[in-house]
Write a protein that binds this DNA or RNA. Structure first.
Lengths: 328, 328
DNA sequence: CTGAAAGCGCTAACAA
DNA sequence: TTGTTAGCGCTTTCAG
């Protein structure tokens, strides 16, 4: 292993000069710096992050805690986080809580200890988590917190409603997700607020955020006499479409469906789903940005910072004019 | 921050006893050990991995390098890796090479330096990678190497062929993936070897591993007069199904389609895809197992070890008896 | 079985 | 501008 001592000897300087030349270039004479840098490169020197962190009090790594890495939603966020971290020369420790709230705080505790800060995506037990961070900066994705990144759920709901309204829909069902979901609560609130303004919104659920959950909502949706449904996510939409078709109805002719999240799934199914989404990688990148901004700042300093990313609407095949509005 | 010194003082022992009590329990008197352990717990002591690694020469972390974390295939493998690492009390540094071969070796170099070993999933430039690992244990997923974990592509091909043959198909097209793909090469070899034994196999491609790639293969598939197609992966299968239907053919009645990878996508599309798969999380878990086995062993020691996980076949709606074999 | 002491590789005062 | 030195928190000889 090549260490600062090797580089120092070869370059004819002291180890501190090597350290400075590599991490605080301004404090070293140009000539010296260039020599050190080239020697370091020639020897293939790679600084040891653990040692640097030990001394400097910063580890040069951040933690990322997700409920399920195999979920495309979190996978996309994770990709944004790793990309953002790379730009800041940070390492990323990734941990998966397997959707278990009781595991979450424990993992967070050990993660916080080994890193300069943690990004907590869609926490399942935020109250227990906050103290577990042990004073380290904590950026929360998709939920409230002093440092938070989220997508504009209210804006997304507005986009979906406006799209459906412009097609002529007047009675719209919302197929809600798990009761504990923060996003779901935000969307319900936005839908509630929008109700009456030209559309009636029928709230259904909660339903599990799965294909079966969507299928299980079909009877309620049909009974609601809505001409369009907005679902908690794309997977639920797929289940709803499937079950509704089994009842002899057509999508979108008899029922328009709008999904949420705009995962790649939305474009692949038949009919392709109109879906509300957001740039998930940007969510990850912004989370890193927030974290980097707070790392190094005095602990507890700084005001709460919340980043809200705009929602998008991808219009595909699953929405159209309601039958009642057509001339037939 | 609680350190060994705090625990030592509180427990009335020296710091070395604390260290031993926690990491080499056998070398400490039961009574002493219990006292130390309970004090450590009471104080909320968490060992500093960086410091431990610095001294011991092991970091307690492994690296995971994937081409694309947002790809469900790698997300599943990554989930298995993090789960396996947790069982061994290892941290996981995750890095995404964004499918860029030239970035891969560079990332691997820095990753290898900060970890006890690296798992390299589906390398895009393995030859450049091997030296970059710098002597650290390197487990390769889905490609050859001294330490390798993969799925049984030949077995998967055999399962698909046997399934189609039993349905009565005699002429089968393979919609191949990228020329650089190792899995694709293995499958082609297996198909080639199987050709003539009761079935004719028509090799097509290479095609990009995307929906458009699958759609672009439709004409070739139709022209091949095959009654069934096996595709490089599920996404390609979706594209193929879509394009074939646009040409007025039905799936599976006019063309049976078998996908590869058995991602969750396969069960969600219409028709649900029959697909060859494997337990991807197990791939990740086995990779960790291999790595742990090699870490601590003398560098370069030990024979090459390759783990081959069995392929599975999930039969769904996209395959059926060919028209030519039916009484019509 | 336990303690004292020597560093792992690096950075950050403090001197020069 | 550069060098010397003192550790960061921990593990691991080496004594006792």
């Amino acid at each position: 292993m090549v260490t600062v001592r090797d580089v120092a000897r070869e370059a004819g300087v002291s180890i501190s000069t090597v350290s400075r030349a590599l991490s605080v270039p301004d404090k070293v004479a140009v000539e010296t710096r260039e020599r050190v840098v080239s020697v370091a490169a020639a020897l293939g020197y790679q600084p040891n992050r653990a040692a640097a962190g030990l001394r400097a009090g910063r580890t040069g790594t951040v933690g990322l805690l997700v409920p399920d890495l195999a979920n495309p939603y979190f996978a996309a966020v994770a990709k944004g986080v790793t990309a953002g971290a790379r730009e800041h020369a940070l390492g990323v420790f990734v941990v998966d809580s397997e959707e278990k709230p009781e595991v979450e705080a424990e993992l967070l505790r050990s993660l916080a200890h080994q890193t300069d800060g943690v990004i907590l995506a869609s926490p399942r037990a935020l109250d227990a988590d906050l103290p577990a961070a042990g004073g380290k900066p904590l950026v929360v994705v998709n939920q409230g917190g002093p440092l938070a990144v989220g997508t504009d759920n209210a804006g997304g709901v507005a986009l979906a409603l406006e799209h459906l309204r412009s097609l002529g829909h007047q009675r719209i069902a919302y197929v809600g997700g798990p009761a504990a979901s923060w996003s779901d609560a935000q969307r319900r609130a936005a839908l509630h607020a929008a109700g009456g303004a030209g559309v009636e919104v029928v709230m259904l659920g909660p339903f599990p955020p799965t294909v079966d959950g969507g299928a299980g909502a079909a009877d309620d949706v049909v009974a609601s006499e809505a001409t369009a449904a907005i679902t908690f996510n794309d997977v639920v939409a797929v289940g709803l479409v499937r079950a509704v078709r089994e009842r002899g109805l057509r999508v979108p002719e008899d029922l328009s469906v709008v999904g949420f999240d705009d995962t790649f799934l939305a474009a692949l199914v038949t009919p392709a789903l109109t879906s509300v989404g957001a740039d998930l990688r940007e969510v990850g990148r912004r989370a890193i940005g927030l974290l980097v901004g707070r790392i190094g700042a005095r602990a507890g300093s700084g005001a709460a910072t919340r980043v809200l990313l705009p929602a998008t609407l991808a219009v595909r095949e699953s929405t159209t004019t309601p039958r009642t509005a057509r001339e037939d």
